[in-house]
Amino acid sequence: MELFKLIVGSVFIFTGLFIFGVATIGLFRFRYVLNRIHVAAKCDSLAALFVCVGLMFFSSSPGPIIKLAVIACFIWLTNPVASHLVSKIEVETNENLEDECKVEELP
């Protein structure tokens, strides 16, 4: 049972770390703010969920497990709001938006 928990937890944590790594690489490979947000902000929320789930397998008492679940919930609530605000400010203030992406209709 201990070995099983170790293996499953490690798989979750390493998957999360892999996604974190890819998100960091993507941050440098894309050129424009709105394209960067896609990898920077969103891959992070899934990776954080994976790492939290992986850590849950390593804790024995219920206290830390519930705390990790609460952490994951708050990350999932705050992360989209933060990236949404960054993108909103960018769209409202950039005058040369047409150069970077096709705009069908603006708010």
Binding site: I37, K42, S45, L46, P80, V81, S83, H84, S87, K88
Partner: peptide
């Protein structure tokens, strides 16, 4: 809806009307 769109990689909500 806006938050779930933003959470899915590849799409970001810019504004809600």
């Amino acid at each position: 809806l806006a938050n779930s769109i933003t959470l899915t990689p590849g799409t970001i909500t810019v504004d809600v009307g």
